[in-house]
Measured scan of single mutants.
Amino acid sequence: MAAAAAAGAGPEMVRGQVFDVGPRYTNLSYIGEGAYGMVCSAYDNVNKVRVAIKKISPFEHQTYCQRTLREIKILLRFRHENIIGINDIIRAPTIEQMKDVYIVQDLMETDLYKLLKTQHLSNDHICYFLYQILRGLKYIHSANVLHRDLKPSNLLLNTTCDLKICDFGLARVADPDHDHTGFLTEYVATRWYRAPEIMLNSKGYTKSIDIWSVGCILAEMLSNRPIFPGKHYLDQLNHILGILGSPSQEDLNCIINLKARNYLLSLPHKNKVPWNRLFPNADSKALDLLDKMLTFNPHKRIEVEQALAHPYLEQYYDPSDEPIAEAPFKFDMELDDLPKEKLKELIFEETARFQPGYRS
Rank of each mutant, 00 (worst) to 15 (best):
I89K: 08
S223F: 11
L335S: 11
R67P: 04
H310Q: 13
N87T: 13
V101W: 08
G357W: 05
H141N: 15
R261M: 12
P274H: 10
D175I: 10
R135L: 13
V14K: 04
R70F: 01
S29K: 09
Y358F: 14
T68Q: 09
H147R: 04
N253F: 09
C127K: 07
P339L: 13
V273W: 02
Q249Y: 07
P339A: 11
L234M: 15
I324M: 02
D288C: 06
L163C: 01
E326P: 01
H178Y: 11
P176Y: 05
T68F: 06
L265Y: 09
R191E: 05
Y25D: 08
E349L: 03
R277T: 12
V104F: 13
R301D: 03
N281M: 05
T160S: 15
T159A: 10
W192C: 15
A307P: 10
L237H: 07
K48V: 10
V14L: 12
A171R: 05
L252K: 10
F228P: 00
I347H: 11
I324N: 13
I211M: 09
Q119H: 15
Y131C: 00
R77P: 03
P93M: 03
V188Y: 08
K151L: 08
M221R: 12
N201Y: 14
Y128H: 01
Y193E: 10
A3H: 03
G204R: 13
N154K: 13
R172S: 08
P298V: 06
T63Q: 14
I90L: 00
T185V: 05
H120T: 08
A4C: 00
S208V: 10
F129R: 00
I56R: 14
H239Q: 15
L267W: 03
D337A: 13
L200P: 05
G10N: 06
V39S: 03
G182W: 14
Q249D: 06
L290Y: 03
R70M: 09
E197W: 01
A309K: 02
M293E: 04
L134V: 10
F78S: 10
V188D: 14
A4N: 02
E314K: 14
N238Y: 14
D167I: 03
D162V: 13
I324Y: 10
R91E: 03
M199A: 10
T181K: 09
A260G: 11
D106F: 06
V49N: 12
D291C: 08
Q355P: 09
G10V: 15
S41D: 12
K342Q: 11
L258I: 06
Y36M: 15
N297H: 12
P152D: 08
F183I: 15
E96D: 13
D336K: 11
I74W: 00
I198M: 03
I198S: 12
R225G: 05
D44R: 07
C65G: 00
I302A: 03
S29Y: 01
Y139P: 12
E326H: 01
K231I: 09
H120I: 11
N87R: 11
G357P: 02
D149F: 04
I227K: 07
K340V: 03
I256D: 08
D251Q: 11
P323C: 06
Q132R: 01
L237V: 00
Y43T: 13
L264H: 03
L338P: 00
N262K: 15
W192Q: 11
N27A: 06
S360V: 08
S202V: 10
L338M: 14
A309D: 11
D175R: 07
P229E: 05
G8T: 06
L130V: 11
R353S: 14
G245H: 09
D318K: 06
G16D: 00
L343G: 04
R172I: 03
K54F: 03
N82W: 05
L289D: 01
W212C: 14
D124K: 04
M98I: 15
A4K: 03
R172L: 14
D179H: 09
I227N: 13
L289T: 01
T181R: 11
F296Q: 04
K340F: 02
P226L: 11
G136H: 01
M98K: 14
N238L: 10
N144M: 08
V188M: 09
D336T: 10
N238S: 11
L335W: 03
Y131N: 15
D179V: 15
Y30A: 00
R15I: 12
T190D: 04
G245I: 03
H310E: 04
L343C: 07
A143T: 11
L155P: 08
Y233N: 15
K342W: 01
E60T: 12
S223L: 13
P11E: 09
K272Y: 09
K203Q: 13
K344W: 00
G182R: 13
H269G: 07
D251A: 12
C40M: 05
K73D: 12
V101M: 15
S223Y: 15
K207L: 12
I95A: 03
I53D: 02
F329M: 07
L107C: 05
Y30I: 06
Q17C: 05
C65W: 12
I72L: 12
T181L: 12
L146K: 05
Y30E: 01
Y312F: 15
S153I: 12
A327W: 07
H178C: 04
H310D: 02
K231V: 03
K300H: 08
T26E: 04
D162M: 00
I209F: 14
D179C: 08
I74L: 11
E12M: 00
P356S: 13
R77W: 12
R172C: 06
T160A: 06
L155A: 02
Y131V: 08
R353E: 09
G22R: 13
I255E: 02
K114M: 04
D100N: 14
D124Y: 13
I227H: 06
P229S: 10
P196M: 05
N281L: 08
R353A: 06
V145F: 08
L258K: 05
G230I: 00
E305A: 13
K285W: 06
Y139V: 04
R191Y: 11
F279Q: 06
N297Q: 10
Y358Q: 12
H61V: 09
L156T: 01
G22Y: 09
I74E: 06
R261D: 04
I126Q: 11
E345L: 11
P339I: 03
P311N: 09
M98P: 12
A7K: 04
V51T: 09
N262A: 04
P23D: 04
R277C: 10
N47V: 11
Q17A: 11
A171F: 03
T160E: 06
P328I: 01
T160D: 02
F168K: 07
Y131K: 09
P323W: 03
A92E: 02
G230L: 02
V46H: 09
M98D: 03
R24M: 09
N253T: 11
V273F: 08
H147F: 10
K138H: 00
L76M: 13
R15H: 06
V14N: 07
N154H: 11
L346V: 07
M293T: 01
A6K: 05
E322V: 13
F354A: 03
L252M: 14
I243M: 08
H61L: 15
I103R: 12
Y64Q: 14
I240K: 08
I86S: 13
A35G: 15
P176T: 15
D177Q: 09
Y25K: 07
L157G: 05
V51Q: 03
A189C: 11
S284F: 12
E322A: 15
Q306Y: 10
I84K: 10
I209Q: 12
R135W: 00
E186N: 02
D162L: 06
T190V: 09
N82E: 06
D106M: 00
I217P: 06
T118S: 14
T118F: 09
W212T: 04
L338E: 06
L287Q: 14
I74P: 06
R359C: 08
D162S: 02
T68L: 12
H269E: 11
I217F: 14
Y317V: 00
A282F: 02
G357Q: 12
A2F: 00
E350L: 09
P339T: 13
N276Q: 11
V214N: 03
T206G: 01
F354R: 11
R24H: 12
G8P: 02
H310K: 03
A143R: 02
F19R: 08
Y102F: 15
K300G: 10
F129W: 07
R194L: 10
M333S: 11
K330D: 00
L163H: 03
L28D: 01
K259S: 00
A189Q: 12
Y113G: 08
L234S: 09
C216S: 15
L28K: 04
R194Y: 05
E109Q: 02
P229N: 04
K259H: 10
M293K: 14
H269W: 05
L150W: 09
S248R: 12
I84G: 01
S122L: 12
L69H: 00
D336G: 00
I31M: 06
V214H: 12
V304S: 11
A5H: 06
E250F: 02
M98A: 01
R70L: 13
L241Y: 10
Y139A: 08
Y316A: 05
D291F: 06
M333H: 04
R301F: 07
S246M: 09
F168V: 01
I133T: 02
G182P: 03
S320L: 07
I53C: 00
Y187R: 04
R91D: 00
